[in-house]
């Protein structure tokens, strides 16, 4: 049933968030901060679905319960964009705009540099 997949996904998200909050608390961060919760949830989901698949317990309807949420991802991002505080960003003044723009440009320029660095210990592909 599709609910099994959705429940599995939700359990992974909750578990990841708990780990992220716990890590934040360990590091004495603000309780609002979640250190890599989404990342842990993803790794957990990858491992669990892989294990279930190998045991043959991952039926197509179960998988559909996860894939639906994955396929609704772009519309969710559009909704996220529509609920951003764009007015504050635009009216934040030149210092805010310049700080944002320059930090994006500097980081973008470094993407190929670091990407190439990772390649040295890798066979040609």
């Amino acid at each position: 049933m599709a609910i099994y997949g959705t429940a599995l996904l939700c359990i992974c998200v909750i578990a990841g968030m708990i780990v992220g909050k716990f890590l934040g608390a360990l590091l004495h961060l603000d309780p609002k901060v979640n250190v890599g919760g989404v990342g842990f949830a993803m790794l957990l989901l990858i491992c669990l679905t892989d294990w279930l698949r190998r045991r043959g317990a991952m039926r197509p309807p179960t998988e559909a319960g996860i894939l639906f949420w994955s396929s609704i991802y772009i519309p969710v991002v559009v909704a996220m964009a529509a609920s951003q505080d764009v007015r504050s960003a635009v009216t934040g003044g030149p210092a805010a705009i310049l700080a944002g723009v320059l930090s994006v440009l500097c980081c973008l320029a470094l993407v190929p540099v670091i990407s190439r660095m990772g390649r040295t210990d890798d066979s040609l592909d």
């Binding site: 998200v13 993803m42 790794l43 989901l45 990858i46 998988e63 994955s70």
Partner: peptide
């Protein structure tokens, strides 16, 4: 976050 985690499939 739910949708992002789902994409990890």
């Amino acid at each position: 976050d739910l949708a992002i985690v789902a994409t990890s499939m």
